[in-house]
Structure formats: C-alpha cells, structure tokens
Design a protein around this nucleic acid. Sequence first.
DNA 1: TTTGCTTCTCAAATCGCTTTGAATGCCGAT
DNA 2: ATCGGCATTCAAAGCGATTTGAGAAGCAAA
Lengths: 340, 340
Amino acid sequence: MKLKDLAAELGLSQTTVSRALNGFPEVNEATRQRVSEAARRLGYRANVSARRLATGRSGAIGVTLPLQRSLHFGPHTAEFLSGISERMAQHDIDIVVTPIDADDEVPVFRRLVASKRVDALVLSAPTPNDERIAALTELGMPFLMHGRADNVKIPHAWLDIDNEGAFRRATSHLLDLGHVRIAMINGPEDQTFAIHRDRGFRSAMAARGLTPDPQLIGGGRFTDENGFRLAQAFLERRPRPTAFLAGSMMTALGVFRAIRLAGLELGKDVSMIAHDDVFPYLNADNMVPSMSTTRSSIRAAGARIAELLLQMQDGKPPASIHELWPVELVLRESTGPAPR
Amino acid sequence: MKLKDLAAELGLSQTTVSRALNGFPEVNEATRQRVSEAARRLGYRANVSARRLATGRSGAIGVTLPLQRSLHFGPHTAEFLSGISERMAQHDIDIVVTPIDADDEVPVFRRLVASKRVDALVLSAPTPNDERIAALTELGMPFLMHGRADNVKIPHAWLDIDNEGAFRRATSHLLDLGHVRIAMINGPEDQTFAIHRDRGFRSAMAARGLTPDPQLIGGGRFTDENGFRLAQAFLERRPRPTAFLAGSMMTALGVFRAIRLAGLELGKDVSMIAHDDVFPYLNADNMVPSMSTTRSSIRAAGARIAELLLQMQDGKPPASIHELWPVELVLRESTGPAPR
DNA sequence: TTTGCTTCTCAAATCGCTTTGAATGCCGAT
DNA sequence: ATCGGCATTCAAAGCGATTTGAGAAGCAAA
C-alpha cells in the first residue's frame, strides 16, 4: 500500500492525498476526512525512507553510547535514553543509538553527518575541553550537550544540573550537623560534572575555613564495588570520617556495605548524602535507613532535551539554549549529628 | 557531495561509481582504486535515505524498550543493547530504539512495519503465551526473541540461556552442602525466564524428595530494594532459611544487606548463589565475600543476536535459529556448608 | 577484415514520497 | 458574456541512490 495506490483507490492525485495527510491548508476539509479515513482503513503509512529522501530530513536523532569512556553505558544512560525516547516517540522521530569509542569519535561523527543519518545529536559526559563541540560545529551538525564543557567558548546548546550548588549545599548541611571529617566519593575525574561537584564540596568547606583531607577524596566509576572499596579504605583512617558524600546511588550502596562491615550504623555513627538520579528501581525512600540525597531526575533531563531538540529543528538557535537545573536536597535518615 | 558529483569529478558514470564502491565484480580493479580513493579524499558517503529507498531495505534494526512492563529499561537492557549495537556498528546498521507500552504493542508494530522503518526487530522478556510472536509473524516482520515463549507453536528465531538448568544445578549444589531451607528470590512471575528458574529450583528439590516452602519464595523486579525486603521477611521466619537463590546481582546486593542487618555472616551462617548477567560495573569476584554465581553474559547474548539477525537478512530461515546457551556455575565465598 | 567473447562502462528507469507551478471549476462582479 | 479571484486539485519534476539492459572497447580466433 503506497501513496499511489491510496490515491488511485480514492480517485485523487498523490499530491492531494499527501497534502491531506500532512495537514496542508489548501485541501478541502471533506476531502481530508475521506483521505484520512481511507488511510486508516487501509493501514497506509508513508515509507519513511522515501519521505526522508524527499524532505532531506532524516527524522531521527542520534545518541552516542560511550563504549570505552570512563562512563559506560550503564543505568544512568539507560534512564536518560528512556527520557529522550519517550518524548520523541510522540513525534515519530527515531532514536538511533551509535556506539562510539573515545578514540575515533570524530571520524564517526563525520560519517554520521555525511550519510545524513540523523538530524541532530545528543552528547553526554563532557570533559572540560571537549573536542566534540568544535568538531560538530565545524561539520554543521546540530547537537545538544547534556552537561557542560567548561572551557569551550564555541556557542552551543546545553542542559546541565547544578552539580556545584548541589554538593555545596550537601556539604554545608553536613557541616551544620557538626561533621568535619567528610569523605567524598566522586565520579570519574575527567568529567566536568565531577569537577563541579568537587568544586562545590571544597567551596563549602572553605567557607568554614576548612580544607578537605585529600586522603578522604576518591573518584571513579559509579559502581557498587568502587564505593565499597573507597569507603572501606577511608574508614580505616584515624580519625575516621564521620560523613560521606557519594556521587551516585550505586556507590552509595557500596559505601553502605562498607559501613556495616565496619560495624558502624548509618545515620548515627556515620552520615551519608548521595546524589540520586532517580532510578525507578532504586528508591532512596525505601532504603533502610532511608537515604538523604541530592536529587535530580536524569530521565526528566532526557525528556527535556528531546523537547529542546524539537525546538532546534523548528529554528530555535542553539546558542540560546542553556538550561541549568537546580538540584533538590532531600534529607532523610542517613544524616544525623556528628558523633562526639 | 553526492554520487553525481563524485562521478562527474572522476569522469565516470554514476553506475560505475556505485558499483565500484559497493564491491561489484564487473568493475576494473584500477577503476575501483581510483574511485574509492576519490571517495575517501572528498569525504563521500552515500545518503542513507536514498540508498534505503532504492534497495528497499532500511538498514536498521529495531529494539523495543519496555516502558511499563514488569521489566524496565534498566541495567540489563543497557548491557544487552551494548552487545547488539557493538556488533551492528561494524556493518553500518542502525539500532533504532522504540519505547513501547505493554498495552499498545501491536499497533506500534503495525506502524513500524508499514513505514518500513526497520528490517527486523529484537524482542525481549517473553511471557509464556507471548502474543507478539503471532502479531509479527502475521505482519511478516522478521524478529528474534531473546528468551523463549513456552506455549507458542509458531516457528520463530530465538536465543535463550538455560535458566532451568542453571537453577537446578545451583539448587543441587546447595543441597549437596546440606542446605534444606532454601529461599528463592526470583524475577517477575509472568516472565518465562523466571518460570524456568522456578522449575529448575523445584525439580532439584524434588529430586531429593523435598518440597520448597512457599513462604520462602518471592519474585518481582530485579532491584536492590526488592531483594532487601524479601530477604528480610524470609530471615524472620523460623526455622530460618540457610541459603538464598537470587535472580540477579541487584537483588543479591539487597539480600546481602538484609543478611548483615540480621547480624548474620554470608558464606557461613547463610549461603547465597546469585545469577550474574555480567555487568562490567558489578563484579562478583570483587565483592566481600565474593559471590557464587550462575553466570551468563547478557552482553554476549546481544552480540550473538546481532550476528544472527545479519544471517537472517542473508536468507537464513528464522525457524532454524534456536540457541540455548549453557550457564556456568561459579563457586566463590558466598556458599558454604549449612550450619547445624 | 570479420566474428565472437569478455570486460568494462553507461544512460535511463526505478524506489515512494514531497513540492512546484499550472489547471480546473465555480462564484459573483463587471 | 467576460473576467478576476478563490478554493481545490493535478501532472510532473525533483530527492540521491541502485539496478537493468544495452553499448563500446579490446582481443583472440577464423
């Protein structure tokens, strides 16, 4: 069933049928009804390849999957992708996922652009001097960065959460509770979001005239295991840290294990605030004890990014798109006054 | 830079250039060299939409993301998708992810088929009488099922792991160690893989003349939280279970927390075998104590499925594709003799 | 020289849609 | 009766590749 058949069936020209289906104004309302009824009845759907060829737009946006970066395609990416695709599905836009080695990013971009496979790209996990921005700008491929690349001056669209503010507030709160030896388990050190969190942590400490103990700062992937190992090492130091900041709920689980293994009680002997990206399967409220968090839904960010990409396609200039989302601090049972 | 331009540049016809680039035999080797060199130099890449229209193949395969099913788009799907896309990227085939509500699956399929968006689909998480198989077969859309739908007689391609055998062996091993009160924390009950695991568990028990205590069997999502709650409830029963089977590493982490919270020691007071889908960020070996597992890489399954889909495109009949992968039992420190 | 056979190359048709520019019918105004 | 204007509809020309069926060119055999 193609356009031609449908047109023949209706005794109309392809032009009229096409216009009727695509909502052009110059077609009679009665005709439009007749056409769309027939299309529904006969299960007609435009061949996307043909449409794409004719319009010159691919009707797809690309999402790159970092395969060998410090950030894997893990739970975070999964949630993020859910957010994007949910929104895009409503607009009949495909999400094309492209695995990409950190090494040959630019060649892959070049290919994507030349083959007109996608209309725009979503980038994630920026580093401070992210080279992808320059590369894509030069190639003329629209994109939206999830996160911020600090030192890049080229104007471009981005959406980020206020990592620095979040960790500053979390740290301040711990300081208010009397904690002084605060350990921090951050993300991969080359990522801007981790750098921003570090900055927030330090600035809150500095505001009280304190300097973080470098022995109590660690980074790395957001895994249970990494959280466990770092926390275990930190808990062996004397004096022992009385509070932890964790970069994700995954690391928080590892930290929690280490705390229990050391015979300590979370929320009493040791406090913890973790960053919660809001996974449907890992609820801070339902943990025992419930976890105090800095919270920002990564899925919501994905949905918003989809929305913004649609606006870009409609002509909104990328340079005008800068969203910095505030982050909530949600206090629950895992934080308490510092033990004396 | 389109084919026409490239041909003009070379003083050849489009036909010859196209053939040269696509490896047809009837073009002179010297010409081919000349053409591909020029293509590289000028950064020529075929417009995929045009190619797809001409060939009638979309050059993409679809992966459906279950949005509201009992299985979310979580870590498992992420790993699986990595496996698929890694393999497909080598063949310049796009992965199109399509979010899909459990409610309106068939309409979405119909749309995908009619619009010729993808050449084949990957399905996951089958239920015993999975209706998707009939629907897709009728629509003539090739697909490959990751898992098995027990009661569906329609011939179709599938790849599954031996869940029943895995859990039978794991259970037998626990019985060998003297455990009798064995608790099982399974996956979502409507999924065949969970049903198969349950079957394996029961048959191993039955082989020793034992019947599982229904009070010690639970199911649900593969989350830390779910594991924690169920384990906690089970550990309150008397006599207490001395061993756990966990459906995933996520639930295992929750079980582990519950065990510690009850003041018990894993590997001594209580044993546990968990199923490990091999997440790069959650290593059974590195846990403390290290975790005994039934192991099968979900990423490898994804890569293999990609491979099989390619073969299907080359004409391999779907009905001939049935792979049942054995599952390793890896014994580590979390299993020990039953306490007396 | 002609014929027959490869080997290589080409012009043109095709895929299924969108979009341009023109045509048609109908109306009231001139 | 003619015309201009408006609302509809249409035939045909793209979009950029692949593929078909045919034409040159080169060379060996007759």
